[in-house]
Structures are given as structure tokens and as C-alpha cells.
Simulated scan of single mutants.
Amino acid sequence: MNDEAIYTARLELIDFLIEAFWDAPTEAFVADLIEGEVELPEESVTPEMDEGFAMLESWIERNRGEDVADVRDELEREYTRLFVGPRPPVLPHETYYREDTDFIGDGLVAVEESYAAVGWEPPEEYPEEADFVAVELAFLRHLVDRQRRGEEEAFGFERVFLDEHLLEWADAFVDDVREKADPGLFLAASLAFGGLVTFEDELVAQMVPG
């Protein structure tokens, strides 16, 4: 796989994860999954990502031919149960998992400073705080896109963001979703998210010597 293909695959995976997490999935997103041709990697990437892709493939096959609106409604109920509540069992925010800050507390400033360091602001359509999983993924996408455009310093920014943020909480978040969610889209996306963080950590380590 050449560099451009790798960049395309990284960005497409991040786009999928943003769409899966930022709110209850839209009908268009669900239709793309169960009616379209979803291309999943044929080769192993990371154990978590492989598990997530296999689960996603099974979920797609189970729902292929089902009414898109019905599937979307089912996903909205599951998304609300898992991530919205009342009293959701999983809170997909970095500061929830960190011991050095309160949930939605001072730790938000550190996340926002990471964004500001590269002149990035979360899109207005994201209603959640700066440490929400979809927002952090959108920032990661921004850095990967800059890398594709040849900005080598973007690898350094990603190295810092991984070390100071994503690597600090991704595993615990995935563990929580694995415990609380049934096999399906959101668990598959969570596993793929954990695998993505591992993959990015290994890739960036090749570009930014420790």
C-alpha cells in the first residue's frame, strides 16, 4: 500500500468514527453502511481494529435488507442508552477518565490548548465539549490531513496529542464500551477507535524519534 492509499484509509476510518460517535447516526450514514459497499481491510491492522472490523461486518450483514429508518431508530435508542442517558453507563470524554482533573473541569483547558497550538477550532456542529471523543477525532483528522499535504511538523503535533491525550484514556473507554454495549455498531466503532490510537502511535513513532 502506497503512502496516498494509507492516508486515504486513515482519513476514511477517522471519518467513520466521527460519524458513529458525534451523535445518533443519521439515516444517510446507516444507509451507506447497510445498503452500500463498505470496504474493510483484508489484512490485519491491530488486534482491536481487526475485532472491530469483523464485528462491523457481522452487524452490516445482520441488517442488510432491513428498513433503514428502523435500524436508525434502534441505533438512536442504543446511542442514547450508552452515551446520553439519563445516567449513561459510558461517558466518552477524556476528562471523565483522567485522575488529574475533574470531569468537564480544568482538563478541558489542556485539550483546548492542543487545538489552539495548531490554530484549530472544533466545528460548530459538534455540540459537545472539547474533550468529547468525536471532537478529539476531528482534531486528529485535521493533523492527518496536514501530514498528507506534506506538513512534517504535523507529525510532531500528533505525537504530543497522542501522548498527552488520546493514549491517556482510549483503552479505558474501550473497556467500558466492551462491558456495557451489545455487539454491534457502537462496540465495533469503539474497538476500531482503540485500534486506531494504537496504529497511529506506532506510525508516528516511525516519523518522530523518541
Rank of each mutant, 00 (worst) to 15 (best):
M1K: 09
T8P: 03
R10D: 07
L13K: 05
L13S: 03
I18S: 01
I18R: 05
A20P: 04
A20L: 12
W22D: 01
D23Y: 13
D23C: 07
A24K: 13
A24G: 15
P25L: 12
T26M: 07
F29A: 08
L33A: 14
E35Q: 15
E39Q: 13
L40S: 06
P41Q: 08
E42F: 05
S44F: 03
S44T: 12
S44V: 04
E48V: 04
M49D: 01
E51P: 03
F53E: 06
A54M: 08
L56G: 07
L56C: 11
E57Q: 13
W59M: 12
I60L: 09
I60D: 12
E61D: 11
R62C: 14
R64E: 13
D67G: 07
V68P: 08
V71C: 12
D73T: 11
L75K: 09
R77H: 06
R77N: 09
E78A: 11
R81A: 12
R81E: 06
R81T: 05
L82R: 02
L82E: 04
G85Y: 03
G85M: 05
P86E: 11
P89D: 04
P89K: 12
L91H: 00
L91P: 00
Y97R: 14
F103V: 01
I104F: 14
I104N: 03
D106M: 05
G107R: 04
L108C: 01
L108V: 02
V111D: 00
E112T: 01
E113M: 11
A116E: 12
W120N: 06
P122R: 09
P123W: 09
E124M: 12
E125H: 12
Y126G: 00
E128W: 06
V133Q: 00
V133W: 00
V133G: 00
A134R: 02
E136A: 01
F139G: 07
F139E: 04
L140Q: 09
L143P: 00
V144C: 08
D145S: 15
Q147T: 10
E151Y: 03
E152R: 09
F155R: 13
F155K: 09
G156L: 05
G156V: 07
R159C: 11
E164H: 10
L166M: 03
W169C: 06
D171R: 15
A172D: 12
A172I: 10
F173T: 05
F173K: 02
R178D: 10
D182W: 09
P183E: 15
G184K: 14
L187R: 15
A188Q: 08
A189I: 06
A189K: 03
S190N: 02
S190H: 09
A192Y: 01
A192F: 00
F193A: 01
T198E: 15
E202K: 11
E202L: 15
L203K: 13
Q206K: 14
Q206E: 13
G210P: 14
